[in-house]
Design a binder for these strands. Structure first.
Length: 590
DNA sequence: ATACCTTTGAAGCCT
DNA sequence: AGGCTTCAAAGGTAT
């Protein structure tokens, strides 16, 4: 076990709050700490996982006990999430929600969706709501009890609900809100849901708030899911589904959903008979199931792509044709992304996912250990649930199902598009620098706008359509530290729980895009090592604000004459990295 | 219509 | 065992 020591006691976990903008001296100090600490990140991560596993193990077993029988109709993750999303909104609107026990808990932004429930007046019309949520898994005193107390009703009362403790002890995730109008009328909670819940605190039975009614997989009209979705509390954004279901609405049910989870343990989902097109008997599709046809698979039931057959036994061809596409469970970062994407989009007005993802990646690294731990835990639960739902599933099943075009025809390692994305991130970093150096006169918007203008104009592609500045300008850093703050300070890196995550390339490589000539098979520009695997860079630790951008990798077309802001930004950057001055300003495009 | 881009992490494959 | 590849989400962009 690694010692998170750091000297002072609370080292790892505590410093995420102080991070944002320290004096340089402090930063440097932190940096040095970071170096030694990062070695332990891997251990940290594993410890976190173990920790959570341990914690959850009891709860799992507990849950298992409480889970007398797998509910046949586990519902989709997405639906559940939608439910919870709605629940949160309702609760917040109702003033139930209070500050979280975990200060560091991320805010969930719930965009103003045109949700049926909203429209029916159930929800407040407030445009954007940042909901403070507590870590559901870590703060679940008697969560199981709470659930159990609820009712005999199976589905929604799943025991294992990662309970987000509601301020008034109203389980925020229990709200029963149909998220699919396909099966339910909006705003109409299933009547079969338990009418009564025990107040977790008082233990007094009470009539549940509509939003409390159904925890997980509550949506099946006839039945309810047995296995609660660990991530149900995650707020789906804009109707997203955890396991996205294409607009086509193919809504594939998960075969195993219809069967007892325990019995399913030996049967691969595709081995089990299922309804045509993967529709569950309940009519409710599982989010993890994607119709092959819809999943961009040209091969529908009649036509299988070669790739799909590549690894499948010959005789099973026909069966495979009908095999629903079971998606991989989301990892911690994916969960984080889902949760935070909307927020980032709202803050920076970036639209392209590639750019957004860069920012998210950086923010991910800037998360505190606890915060990341939450997601790791969720991811673990997710995998656990997934394995329960699809016992026979293997990640290999999805191999080759996605047509991937070879990238080898892209010899240029510095595609303009990439450069532009990188630039956006760079600019965000620079804005942070300005703030750090107390250079208020230059705002992010200015930087971004001017810089991107310069770049965009000279760029061949129309890259990121950066903002109508207003929005960006209007978007202050989040309380937790928006992406504008994101460049994690060393302390943040230190605090990063997830070793792999934390040590993974990007901490040392804020602008990795420009350094990735070929997808994952690139050489780290700092180390010269291939960074294809997450572990390959684990030994490197650099503060996120790390290094000057390797401008050699920037396309010359991007190097337009520097604007004053450019110069200021670069100067600022240089100030922090005196030994490696940026050359952008001086480099002339030939 | 669909692959690409981009991120991290998990899992599978390959040597 | 270690390194590499694939896929998970997302949505604008490119082909």
């Amino acid at each position: 076990m690694p010692q998170l020591n750091g000297g002072g006691g609370d080292d790892l976990g505590a410093n995420d709050e102080m991070i944002s903008f320290k004096d340089e001296g402090e930063q440097e100090e932190k940096i040095s700490e970071n170096v030694s600490a990062e070695r332990d990140l891997d251990d940290l991560k594993s410890s976190l996982v173990n920790e959570s596993e341990n914690n959850s193990s009891s709860s799992d077993s507990e849950q298992a006990e409480r889970r007398p029988q797998p509910r046949p109709d586990l519902d989709s993750y997405e639906k559940t999430r939608d439910y919870f999303s709605e629940a949160y909104r309702r609760q917040q609107d109702g003033g139930f929600f209070k500050s979280p026990h975990y200060p560091g808990y991320p805010f969930f932004m719930i965009p103003d969706l045109t949700n049926p429930y909203l429209s029916n007046g159930a929800l407040s019309p407030s445009a954007r709501t940042y909901l403070q949520m507590k870590w559901p898994l870590l703060d679940v005193p008697g969560a199981a009890g709470l659930k159990d107390a609820r009712s005999p009703t199976p589905g929604h009362l799943s025991n294992k609900v990662p309970v987000v403790q509601h301020a008034h002890h109203v389980h925020p995730l229990t709200p029963l809100i149909t998220y699919s109008n396909e099966h339910f009328s909006p705003g109409t909670p299933p009547s079969h849901l338990s009418p009564e819940i025990l107040d977790p605190k008082t233990g007094i039975p009470r009539t549940p708030h509509p939003s409390e009614l159904s925890p997980y997989y509550p949506l099946s009209p006839g039945a309810v899911g047995q296995i609660p979705h660990p991530l149900g509390w995650l707020v789906p954004q804009q109707g997203q589904h955890m396991y996205s279901i294409p607009p086509g609405g193919f809504r594939h049910p998960y075969p195993t959903l219809a069967m007892n989870a325990s019995m399913s343990s030996r049967f691969s989902p595709h081995m089990m008979p299922h309804h045509p097109h993967g529709m569950h008997q309940t009519g409710i599709p599982h989010p993890a199931i994607v119709s092959p046809a819809i999943k961009q698979e040209p091969n529908t039931h009649d036509h299988m792509s070669p790739s799909m057959h590549s690894k499948s036994p010959g005789p099973a061809k026909k069966e495979e044709d009908k095999k629903p596409h079971i998606k991989k469970p989301l990892n911690a970062f994916m969960l984080y992304m889902k949760e935070m994407r909307a927020k980032v989009v709202a803050e920076c007005t970036l639209k392209e996912s590639a750019a957004i993802n860069q920012i998210l990646g950086r923010r991910w690294h800037s998360l505190s250990r606890e915060e990341q731990a939450k997601y790791y835990e969720l991811a673990r639960k997710e995998r656990q649930l997934h394995s329960q739902l699809y016992p026979g599933w293997s990640a290999r099943d999805n191999y080759g199902k996605r047509k991937k075009r070879k990238r080898d025809n892209k010899p240029d390692s510095t595609p303009e598009g990439k450069g532009s994305f990188s630039l956006s991130v760079l600019l965000l970093d620079l804005s942070s620098l300005f703030r750090a150096e107390r250079t208020p006169s230059i705002g992010l918007c200015e930087i971004v706008l001017l810089a991107t203008l310069d770049f965009s104009i000279s760029n061949k592609k129309q890259c990121v359509q950066y903002l109508p500045s207003e929005k960006m300008c209007d978007s202050p850093a989040s309380s937790h530290g928006s992406m504008l703050d994101s460049p994690a300070t060393p302390s943040a890196a230190l605090a990063s729980p997830a070793a792999p995550a934390a040590t993974h390339s990007e901490q040392a490589q804020p602008l990795s895009l420009t350094t990735k000539p070929e997808g994952r098979l690139h050489h780290h520009f700092l180390t010269g090592k291939p960074s294809g695997s997450a572990s390959s860079l684990s030994s490197h630790s650099t503060p996120i604000l790390s290094r000057p951008i390797p401008f050699s990798s920037l396309h010359h077309s991007m190097l337009s004459p520097p604007s004053p802001f450019h110069q200021a930004a670069l100067h600022s950057h240089h100030a922090l990295f005196q030994s490696q001055p940026l050359s952008l300003v001086t480099k002339s495009s030939d």
